[in-house]
Simulated scan of single mutants.
Amino acid sequence: MKYAVTKWIAPLIVVEVDPRDFDGPHSAELEKRLAEHFRGASFALITPDIEPASGIRARGLAVPHDVLTDPDLVWHDLVLPEEPEAPF
């Protein structure tokens, strides 16, 4: 899993996941954990897909695919903690 921060209307976090995590039985739980991890910041979840013209499928905030596939995005590895982090 990896993430990048971009600006669209406001700052936006783009999280790319494996298709198994995007479609799998735990995808709703993953979205909840990401929302907790990013503390309510706006994010979009993407996964590679060869069928759409953009080359990705996206879920979450409705953002134009050219924003989500910007070649200038700087990607970082993302590992979610096992337990939610304490806010202090």
Rank of each mutant, 00 (worst) to 15 (best):
M1S: 06
M1F: 02
Y3M: 11
Y3W: 11
A4G: 10
A4E: 05
K7F: 13
K7D: 14
I9F: 05
A10W: 12
P11L: 10
L12M: 14
I13E: 01
I13N: 08
V14C: 06
V14R: 04
V14N: 04
V15S: 03
V15H: 03
E16H: 03
E16K: 11
V17A: 09
V17D: 04
P19V: 05
R20P: 05
F22L: 00
G24I: 02
P25K: 06
S27W: 04
A28I: 15
E29P: 04
E29Y: 08
E31W: 03
E31S: 10
E31G: 08
K32P: 00
L34H: 09
E36P: 02
H37L: 08
F38N: 05
F38K: 07
A41T: 02
A41K: 10
S42D: 12
S42A: 15
F43W: 02
L45P: 06
L45T: 07
P48K: 02
D49T: 00
I50M: 13
E51F: 15
A53D: 13
A53T: 15
A53I: 15
S54M: 07
G55E: 09
R57G: 02
A58G: 02
A58V: 00
R59A: 09
R59V: 04
R59G: 02
G60M: 00
G60D: 03
G60Y: 10
G60A: 06
L61H: 13
A62C: 11
V63W: 00
P64I: 06
P64R: 08
P64G: 10
V67Y: 13
L68I: 06
T69F: 04
D70G: 03
D72I: 12
L73M: 15
V74L: 06
W75L: 06
H76F: 13
H76W: 04
H76T: 12
L78G: 05
V79Q: 13
L80P: 08
L80N: 06
E83D: 12
E83W: 03
P84T: 02
P84A: 00
P84C: 01
E85N: 07
E85L: 15
E85M: 09
E85R: 11
A86Q: 13
P87R: 11
F88N: 07
F88E: 01
